[in-house]
């Protein structure tokens, strides 16, 4: 729902890169409908790989539904051992798999790399008495139900960020008065109209209103300050909240080590290319590339942490 950006459709300026292992064909599954974040990630990968001459033949396939778990299921069923099959996914999928009790999980696929990410910001109306993370924490301690949070769907990234903040502030996450809205626009209207205390969503949803001064930033869930936003992180205000809505690419289960290495090589070259970084910048996405075993470890840690926080939020048992 965030970052509707665009994949450039540039006439292929083929630049042969001899160093890269040969991958002649690739299929990318976007486990969501056309237009959403995962679809755009898939199509950006497609256009970059093609115009950089890394993979000549790429197709994107959309399978929408249930937070990506329907696409994932189909991917695992059909593509085992197929080195040309890849799938795009992200943090939302981690939560969806847990909440839907999906019988196929991320451990059934071969993770390749984290590609992009977006940090979550907590904002308040410019007229709000809440200015800092400390103010927000105090308000929560005083009257936890009186602080209303407007954000995305229940159990989603925004909800998780809010829950983590509550935890760090010393109040029970499942008692926060979190009000899910179906799109960033609706939540934005509620915050601007003064109907809720604070808003929590990906930075891009709020960026124009922040710039215009209609919203003020209470904090951003990044580990360190971000160049595009002149506002403190939660970490530097003493609240250890680090949440990233990341997106990744993964390969099919059961491929050989050599095949995995070839794919990692191609993806790594892509992520370092100027074209890719230029694309990300126009979309307002941050390059948070993390590949191979490091990413696999990160993924495992994310799954554990998310399972815990979803239980704390009362979303799962």
């Amino acid at each position: 729902m965030k970052n509707f950006g665009i994949a450039a459709f540039v006439a292929a300026s083929v630049m042969a890169s001899a160093a890269v292992a040969q991958v002649s064909e690739l299929r990318i599954m976007a486990p969501a409908g056309p237009g959403g974040g995962w679809d755009q990630t898939a199509r950006t990968i497609q256009s970059t790989l093609q115009s950089e001459g890394l993979v000549p033949n790429i197709q994107v396939e959309n399978v929408a539904g249930a937070g990506g778990t329907i696409g994932l299921q189909q991917f695992v069923n059909r593509s085992t051992g197929d080195a040309a099959a890849t799938i795009v996914g992200g943090y939302v999928m981690v939560g969806a798999i847990i909440a839907n009790e999906s019988n196929v999980t991320l451990s059934d696929i071969t993770p390749l790399a984290r590609l992009t990410g977006e940090y979550v910001v907590v904002v308040a109306n410019a007229d709000s008495p809440i200015n800092t993370a400390e103010d927000l924490a105090n308000a929560l301690r005083n009257d936890i139900g009186g602080v209303t949070w407007a954000g995305g769907s229940a159990g989603g990234v925004d909800h998780i960020a809010a829950g983590k903040f509550a935890q760090v502030a010393g109040v029970a996450p499942e008692q926060i008065n979190y009000i899910p809205y179906s799109g960033g626009g609706e939540a934005l209207a509620a915050i601007l109209g003064g109907q809720v205390s604070v808003g929590v969503s990906g930075f891009s949803e709020f960026s124009s209103q922040i710039e215009a001064g209609a919203l003020k930033v209470i904090g951003i869930t990044a580990p360190e300050r971000q160049a595009y936003l002149d506002a403190p992180t939660f970490v530097e205000q003493g609240f250890d909240v680090d949440v990233q809505n990341w997106r990744m690419i993964a390969a099919a289960p059961g491929i050989s080590d050599a095949e995995r290495a070839a794919l990692l090589d191609v993806i790594g070259t892509m992520a370092a290319s100027d074209k890719w970084n230029a694309e990300l910048e126009t979309k307002g996405w941050v390059n948070t590339y993390l590949a191979g075993d490091d990413f696999a470890a990160y993924l495992a840690e994310q799954i554990t942490a998310t399972t815990a926080i979803l239980a704390d939020l009362g979303i799962t048992e």
Binding site: F4, L192, S208, Q209, K283
Partner: peptide, 24 residues
């Protein structure tokens, strides 16, 4: 406001963003 109230408007917002324009 940069506030899309329909699916098509949401897609047009995406169109703006691709040119680095932020409706608002």
């Amino acid at each position: 406001l940069g506030l899309p109230t329909s699916a098509t408007a949401a897609m047009m917002l995406a169109g703006f963003q691709q040119y680095g324009l932020q409706p608002g």
